[in-house]
């Protein structure tokens, strides 16, 4: 439950970070391996052999069909995985609708836009909040809300924090009839409007 609200704080970049780390380590390992071979630590004879080793070339020529089949499979794999990775990185973060009642003969859904507008209006009514933005995040099975509040410079952060659950989220919970709605709130302080000196 609270893990869902924590996950809603920001879009997860775990996949991208993991992939990039793996790729980086792979490049480091390849570079180090090439340096080790070139320095002659695996034998001075090995260091003086060409990159495209004749032994390997001979083996490939003997098993040409197998090598071609493996190359085709690897190429297709790279094509599919690369496109998948690019699409996941470019995809918009989903805004699931909130399904309140899902029985055989009735279905009650609050659209993501309606929920966001209601929360935003409630949040902007809190004193010291100048601007608010709300959206649903997560999946349709496990929706959560991300609420960003911009506070006036000099705002009483603790007072706003105490108001959050009681007014804003409490009203949303009671009006939509959901006992629980995992929510991540981002509080941002705005800079003071500078006074122009004439």
């Amino acid at each position: 439950m609270s893990r869902r609200s924590t996950a809603a704080v920001t879009r997860s970049a775990l996949g991208e970070r993991g992939g990039l780390t793996a790729l980086g380590l792979l490049l480091v390992l390849a570079g180090v391996a090439a340096l080790v071979v070139g320095a002659g630590w695996l034998g001075t004879f090995r260091a003086r052999r060409p990159l495209l080793d004749p032994i390997a070339v001979d083996w490939l020529a003997e098993h040409a069909d197998l090598a071609r089949a493996i190359a085709l499979v690897l190429g297709l794999l790279a094509l599919v995985l690369g496109l998948r990775w690019a699409l996941l990185a470019l995809r918009q973060e989903p805004r699931p609708d909130l399904v309140l009642d899902h029985t055989a003969d009735s279905e009650l859904t609050v659209t993501a836009g309606a929920l966001a507008d209601a929360l935003r209006a409630d949040a902007e009514a809190v004193p010291d909040v100048t601007r608010a933005r709300a959206r649903t995040v997560g999946s349709a099975d496990a929706p959560a809300v991300r609420l960003s509040l911009w506070l006036r410079d000099g705002a009483d952060v603790r007072a706003v924090w105490e108001e959050l659950d009681r007014t804003v989220l409490g009203r949303a919970r009671s009006s939509f009839g959901t006992p629980s709605l995992p929510t991540a709130v981002r509080l941002e302080l705005e800079t003071a409007e500078r006074q122009r000196v004439r």
Partner: peptide, 21 residues
Amino acid sequence: VLRVLSALIGLAVAAAGALLV
């Protein structure tokens, strides 16, 4: 930067795979 780089690397890997095939 991370997101854009991920997309570019993914596209590069896909293009390399397509050329190989």
